[in-house]
Design a protein around this nucleic acid. Structure first.
Lengths: 207, 207
DNA sequence: CGAGGGTGGGTGAGTGCTCACTCACCCGTC
DNA sequence: GACGGGTGAGTGAGCACTCACCCACCCTCG
């Protein structure tokens, strides 16, 4: 084996998924061509078709195997809020959600360019019992659990609150450019942003 | 007015813009081909090139001439909050923003598929002093005006509040499918949603 | 033990199709 | 008779995808 490579090589399938993921992020879905993917993965175009039925299949695989998941954190908090305050929990959720959306939003968004592909992906997500609405509903569940525990107001609209918090995190990926290469950079760092959202949501803004 | 056609015909340029806009919404950006646009507009492909330098030009024109604007409402409220309560104003803002994003989000999102086109569009937006971050900042301005007027808490973080409200409205377009044709339909109608957001943001959720 | 052959993973060289875009030409109006 | 707005018929490029073929590996059986 060559001394420069610790592993002889990753399996080809993995290299293809990595390459496709990378190109989807950097070039956008429509310029992530089979030729480029194969080049970056270090194999032939024909090899792609040994592992995936077609380009659509490959992209669906990337979306479901490479994008991070947010639900585990929410689920954990529903089951066990831990010894932390609601504000601490909400801050952590906001932080994770902001990072999650910053990574996954550009790719998810580019599905809108290809309505066909989007509906296939939506179907796959529904099959798995997930989808873009799940973070909101997961947070809603967490808030209702805290409400039962008397840690947030009994009159609070938990769904509205969940929409506000998750929305702000997602919107940040859309309205601001994390890398700052193209659009306006976000005006504050993730930690401050998350803390401000949690505090504002809890306290409200009425005079 | 004539029974079948009120106008003998719209100018070709307008018909092309309408056709392109329609196809971008329904088929997605990458299937909105010059051939389809010409067919729907009722002219030849070559005619497109008499009015626009190329497909990119056409799309940039659609984005800047067909997408609705949200800023006028915000601007009006900053200058004159009117005789209405903050909650009424925020509800109206949320309502308008939800409708705005439902219409413009799918198209704006599909720009992510074409990084080249996205940066051209971003540049055009910056030129016009606008962009996806403007609604947040416009709302922030409004909130600061209300804060000066003593109608919201002096300690409130207006930027966080603006991020929460606008984010929830934008996220709704992303997480739920307004037409209900593909994804999950939104769980409540726009008016209720807007009212719940405004109330929750004002009051907070702490116990 | 060693020949035989099925099999999974790989390739280089196409193939046909669709795309954005062009060109020579046309026609009604000032 | 110039000119703005329009056309039908291309054209070359780039795309997803296929095909015939290759080879290392392992299982099987004489």
């Amino acid at each position: 084996m060559s001394p420069s490579r610790p592993q002889p090589q990753k399996p080809t399938r993995e290299r293809i998924l990595d390459a496709a993921h990378e190109l989807m992020r950097t070039l956008g879905l429509s310029r992530a061509t089979t030729k480029e993917i194969a080049r970056l993965a270090g194999c032939s175009e024909a090899a792609l078709y040994k592992h995936f039925a077609g380009k659509e299949d490959l992209f669906v695989a990337v979306l479901s195997e490479r994008l991070p998941r947010l639900t585990p954190l929410l689920h954990r908090l529903v089951l066990d809020p831990g010894g932390r305050t609601v504000e601490q929990n909400l801050t952590e959720i906001a932080r994770q959600a902001t990072l999650f959306y910053a990574e996954s939003f550009p790719i998810a968004a580019s599905l809108y360019a290809e309505a066909k592909l989007k509906s296939r992906h939506d179907a796959a997500m529904r099959e798995l019992g997930t989808g873009p609405h799940m973070p909101i509903e997961g947070l809603d569940s967490y808030l209702r659990a805290e409400q039962s525990a008397g840690r947030i107001a009994a009159t609070a609209d938990t769904f509205a609150a969940a929409s506000l918090l998750m929305g702000a995190c997602a919107q940040r990926a859309f309205a601001y450019d994390p890398a700052g290469t193209v659009g306006a950079p976000p005006p504050q760092d993730v930690d401050d942003f998350a803390a401000a959202l949690a505090a504002t949501l809890l306290a409200g803004i009425s005079g």
